[in-house]
Design a protein around this nucleic acid. Structure first.
Lengths: 212, 212
DNA sequence: TAGATTGTTAATCGATTAACAATC
DNA sequence: TAGATTGTTAATCGATTAACAATC
């Protein structure tokens, strides 16, 4: 058990380190990587790499570096990437379909194959009952039952902005712990629920600022 | 001209303030909003709102607040949202199509309607020459000519991870100033080019860490 | 005028970087 | 052993918050 709270930004970098180690897995034999090299590939300083890793344990050997395969396993464990994660999609519009296919198509052995889309919700009566990518579309009010029977870890929200807060409330109510929201609205949820955002318009607007 | 460099995170919040003011535009008559209220809606402290705005000028009135319409116009100007922004899509896969439709469907008056998709690139010979959403698909090597003739502000990259760096190099070469990359790889570009990332797998992995 | 709220400065908080003893 | 690199502490840097005089 760690003594101190680890900042979000550290977790984000751990994911990036894991990604680099996954790419290195192809190389054969035991293989050591230094904070120097890992940092270079990740675009951060060696000191930062060491500090990030040190908040979870002592994974390296002085004078040598980190054994790549071992470090990968440690990171997978820290980041809960060593077990399947159940994902629900809310809103089977174009984006919802694209994401579902993207995650399902994930080549075996890739990092995304731990995510399993086990539920799809949409309020459109014409979509309810249909099957998409092997999953039957349910109405949002079927969430609590689904949650109870099979459990869900993360909800991906690709619903219209106007519906987002309502759907978030539903998820919170049902006990989902993490939301990935694609709608361009801030969601208000209790502290024990994590919300991340993916907001294309916001990114484009931010980029616009830096133009000439 | 501002004296000091404004941090990225401030710009990101300005976009959020603008979004809130856009929503308020519907309300009629002159309308003042305080840093208190704007902060509440944006999920930040009033002091932060005032400090963010103050890095670009004095837009408020003591004892009253900020005139909503005026502040909106100021922010639109600061963020370059008062002129059309030309966007290119690289990679017309499922995600590329979804994003193109999303940006084109933007209801008039919404924040996204300043972004115009004026070019689509894909290396698949079967797609080249086809028209999607009124734009003809070109091969990537047509970029320099396109750039010269019409100009492009931002490139959205929805290409496979393996092609991302190559496409980024191409964009840099052609003089594009900002990239929004959906491929799960870090891009190495010169300092004068901005890269933002939208990385669903990374977000899901980060969220996984916080589960139970 | 009295009440409210800005713009700004100083204080606090937190994250990054530098440096180095420990040690493989 | 000599060279290299870790884990960790102290120094630096930067962003957020608190506080308040100015003023509408």
């Amino acid at each position: 058990m760690r003594r101190f709270r680890v900042p979000d930004v550290v977790i984000r970098r751990l994911v990036i380190y894991l990604r680099i180690l996954n790419e290195m897995e192809l190389e054969t034999g035991p293989h050591y990587i230094s904070s120097q090299e890992l940092g270079q590939r990740a675009g951060v300083s060696p000191a930062q790499v060491r500090k990030d890793l040190a908040s979870f344990g002592e994974f390296g050997k002085q004078g040598v570096g980190y054994e790549a395969h071992n470090l990968r396993e440690e990171l997978r464990s820290i980041l809960n990437q060593d077990r399947p994660i159940k994902v629900a999609i809310f809103g089977l519009g174009e984006l919802g379909r694209a994401l579902t296919r993207y995650l399902n198509r994930c080549p075996h052995g890739e990092e995304c194959d731990v995510f399993h889309i086990t539920a799809i919700f949409d309020s459109d009566p014409r979509k309810i009952g249909q099957t998409f990518e092997g999953v039957q579309v349910s109405p949002p009010d079927a969430l609590p039952a689904k949650m109870e029977r099979e459990g869900l870890d993360i909800a991906i929200m690709t619903v219209p902005a106007s519906a987002a807060q309502m759907v978030a409330d539903l998820c919170v109510q049902a006990g989902i712990q993490a939301l990935l929201n694609f709608a361009p609205v801030k969601l208000f949820v209790p502290d024990n629920v994590r919300v991340h955002y993916s907001d294309v318009t916001l990114e484009l607007q931010q980029l616009s600022f830096y133009l000439s």
